[in-house]
């Protein structure tokens, strides 16, 4: 593939803390940013809970990594998509989220996924 840029999408479908997938997914996104590919991150199902405001992990003695999502912009990871259906199913709105995102319908997400070269699932 040489110097070609591929389209990478990180698909996050799991809530934080209960399992490590959300944190380790974020670590891939941060490392992956250095490769200067065309990156987008999507939050579907319980993945939307990863970016909910007001997370305080003091009582469970785990690292609160929610603020790191705000730093993604500095890594030029700017395409953050959230499933509109998943957000609504959970009684949440964009105002509940810690970062600016684009809400996408299932059909829009289908189209976005079809455009990708590589889909990483977490």
């Amino acid at each position: 593939m040489g110097g070609d840029v591929k389209k990478f999408m990180y698909v996050n479908r799991k809530a934080p803390y209960g399992t490590i997938y959300a944190l380790e997914s974020l670590e891939v996104v941060l490392i992956g940013a250095a490769f200067e590919q065309d990156v987008s991150v999507v939050f579907i199902d319980d993945g939307v809970f990863e970016i909910v405001k007001g997370q305080d992990t003091a009582g469970i003695e785990m690292k609160n990594f929610s603020n790191t999502y705000k730093a993604l912009e500095m890594y030029d990871v700017e395409k953050l998509y959230v499933s509109k259906d998943s957000l609504e199913e959970r009684g949440l709105t964009e105002d509940d989220l810690i970062v600016d995102v684009e809400l996408k319908t299932a059909a829009e997400l289908t189209a976005l996924m079809e455009e990708q070269d590589v889909l990483l699932s977490f």
Partner: peptide, 12 residues
Amino acid sequence: KNSLDTCLAHAK
């Protein structure tokens, strides 16, 4: 789990 549901909702 809802993996199949979500897949069916997003597959072209």
